[in-house]
Design a protein around this nucleic acid. Structure first.
Length: 262
DNA sequence: GTGATTGTTAGTAA
DNA sequence: ATTACTAACAATCA
């Protein structure tokens, strides 16, 4: 369930549960068709090493050490990292299992197989090669306004395009636009300078809040759209009285209020 | 059976 | 040459 806040929560999990433990084994799960995972050579590189630091850029989570190697994890739509201690059972749909010294293990569970794990040498170089834009919590305001404001497509699509800025997906783009009262299909280059700056400020505010609660949506205010993504439901904004609608924008479902977003 | 799902991407069109 | 849009990928759930 992975956008920026979820991935940051995953990074924290790695930081807390998987650092400074020698890797004894890294092995593939049962059904690994249609999913990209390290081959035996790369898995072998992990043996005997430790993860001593973590990093995140957009929706990519990293664990590794100064001298490498690193793993990079992309959760896809339904991927998740699950640390656990033996003799607990390995979760179902585990595609990759890392066994550390002692009883600690780390499972990459990915039922829908749209995620991946790769072994790399340098996270910074990897981000560059993949063509990702700056992290959404790292990009400067002027750079944001320039790159988003020069996009002809829908503002929602611009916020979600990982090569412009990395980390925002379908739910959080909806949330940002809901907050600032802008319809998801508005052309990005037709937003005023004030609206662009408002988008930037709101993006930071909301993402930081999502990170604060470690992407636990139940802890977010019930005046947020993310708590009320139901077509035909009442707009959760105080005093609005509008109705939540679902439309298609850029091939994705865009939930928005029919009254205060335009 | 139908259509939806928090993601990416190859191919196509403008 | 870029940029933007569509369909496809896979499994599961309502």
């Amino acid at each position: 369930m992975p956008e920026l806040p979820e991935n940051e929560a995953q990074r924290l999990t790695l930081e807390r549960e998987c650092l400074n433990r020698t890797i004894e084994k890294a092995e593939l799960g049962d059904d690994v068709s249609y999913i990209e995972l390290p081959g035996s050579n790369e898995l072998g590189r992990l043996k005997g090493r430790q993860f001593t630091e973590t990093w995140r850029h957009g929706k990519n989570v990293f664990a590794g050490s100064k001298s490498g190697p690193w793993i990079t994890v992309h959760l896809g739509m339904t991927g998740w990292l699950i640390p656990f201690d033996a003799p607990d059972d390995t979760p179902d749909h585990t595609k990759l299992l890392i066994t550390f010294e002692g009883d600690r293990r780390l499972a990459f569970r990915c039922p829908r197989k749209l995620g991946h794990v790769r072994v790399i040498d340098d996270p910074g170089a990897y981000i560059g090669e993949q063509g990702f834009g700056p992290d959404a919590l790292d990009i400067a305001k002027d750079a944001f306004c320039k790159v988003v404001g020069s996009t002809r497509g829908a503002i929602k699509s611009a916020l979600m395009s990982q090569d412009k800025l990395a980390g925002i997906g379908n739910l959080w783009s909806d949330e940002i636009l809901f907050r600032i009262g802008v319809g998801p299909e508005r052309r990005a280059n037709e937003l005023s300078d004030d609206e662009l700056e408002d988008t930037f400020d709101t993006m930071r505010e909301l993402l930081k809040k999502g990170v604060d609660v470690e992407a636990d949506y139940a802890k977010l205010p019930d005046t947020w759209l993310i708590r009320k993504r139901d077509e035909g439901g009442g707009c959760p904004r105080r005093g609005c009285g509008g109705t939540i609608r679902r439309t298609k924008v850029g091939g994705r479902s865009a939930y928005h209020c029919d009254t205060h977003q335009s």
